[in-house]
Simulated assay, not measured.
Amino acid sequence: MEMIANPDIIIEHKPEFCNHCGHDLSDEPTTFILRRQAVDIQPIIFEFTEHRIFQKIYACGHHTKALFPTGVNSSISYGANIQAIIAYMYTRQYLPFERMSEFFSDVCNLNISRGSLCTLLKYFAQKAQLAYELIAQKVEHKKMVGGDETGVKLNGKKEWFWTFQSQVATYITFSNNRGLLI
């Protein structure tokens, strides 16, 4: 690792007394001699954002209510950063639900059930669907495409992951058939 020029926190350590005779050194001049840095992460502190909606009544008597922002669908929910960490842990780090739940409990002091993890990942999959389809189109329209399949067991049954790759994109899909994508 390398030290940085402008650390976030600087703590100066100055001797208070002489290590040899015990004399008070508080009024003596100091000379800087060495520095060391420690890099760390801040403790995870939750931020609760409360959304409040109001209504107004116009002279015609109609009650117009404000709407909650997209994604704020229940009285309390997981925010975008927690959702992104869950998606990253699952899709990039390949962590199973039990280990993700354990991480949030042990490191963040936040209990997230496996069911909640599954629900959040289904939501992320829906959000990613358009990008997934765009990748498929980009690969499909290239002249040169490499392909391969890998067998996997799902609930004791043989299934297949197919990978198609061009110079610009890689498309991975799942099929219950080795010879035909359904």
Rank of each mutant, 00 (worst) to 15 (best):
G156K: 00
R114I: 13
Y78D: 07
T91Q: 07
F104V: 04
I86R: 00
K158E: 03
A136Y: 08
S26H: 09
F54N: 09
I9T: 04
A59W: 05
S74Q: 14
R35K: 14
D24E: 08
A136N: 01
F124S: 09
D24Y: 06
M3I: 15
E28A: 14
I112C: 03
E50S: 07
H13A: 04
A5S: 14
S26T: 12
T150V: 04
T91V: 06
R35I: 04
P96G: 03
H141A: 14
V139E: 07
S74Y: 11
M100D: 01
K158L: 08
H62A: 14
W162L: 01
Q55H: 15
T119P: 01
I4Q: 10
F32C: 07
S166T: 02
T64H: 14
Q129N: 09
N176G: 10
V168W: 05
E98L: 09
Q137R: 15
S166R: 00
R35E: 13
M89N: 06
L25F: 04
T150W: 01
N111K: 15
R52L: 15
Q83S: 12
Y78I: 10
S175M: 03
I41A: 09
V107L: 12
W160Q: 00
I9S: 03
A84Q: 10
Y171C: 00
D40H: 15
F32D: 13
D40A: 13
C21A: 06
V168E: 13
G22A: 09
N177Y: 03
F32M: 12
I82K: 00
I41H: 07
Y123S: 11
R99P: 04
G61K: 05
T70C: 07
E140R: 13
G151S: 07
H63P: 02
K122T: 04
L120Q: 01
E2W: 12
I45A: 10
M100Q: 02
I86D: 00
